[in-house]
Amino acid sequence: MPSYQTSDSSAQFTPWIYSDLVKQHFLEPKNFLMGDESKYPHNCQGIVGNPICGDQMLMMLQVDSETDVIKDVKWKTYGCASAIASTSALSELAKGKTLDQALKISAEDIAKFLGGLPKHKFHCSVLGHEALAKAIANYRQKPQNPPASS
């Protein structure tokens, strides 16, 4: 019986197409929310994207109304590896920052933090960023949380 294994065992297969950091955040994403999000205490949220387009992102924040600091971030997604990894990274970057500081985190910052993303995957990393911005806007829309004067 002929063997059907790949013939050259010395051949080195190309490793993961993403950087080690992307892989790490993909395999063990930080701050994601399992199951029913209604049980998670939050004071604002943002949802962007659409499953029809292949990705959707929900971000929920706990904001300290005295200091404007993001105390906790949780997210959910229907998305690809890049969306999962970059949102995991973003959630880590945003935690502990004020809303203004968090808004300044750019998609480039996330890609940089992850050691780069394939070009056609850049869109996926933008999604988390947009969800965060929308959550912050949602927070500031509420009459009890006027935008910080700057």
């Binding site: 292949g54 229907y78 998305g79 690809c80 590896a81 890049s82 999962i84």
Partner: peptide, 25 residues
């Protein structure tokens, strides 16, 4: 509710299982 490319990459990463996806991403 589970996105294809993520399934594909978890299979690859966790057990070296190689498959395809019809997902756009």
């Amino acid at each position: 509710a589970a996105e294809g490319e993520s399934i594909q990459l978890y299979l690859d990463a966790e057990k070296g299982i190689v498959v395809s996806t019809g997902s756009a991403c």
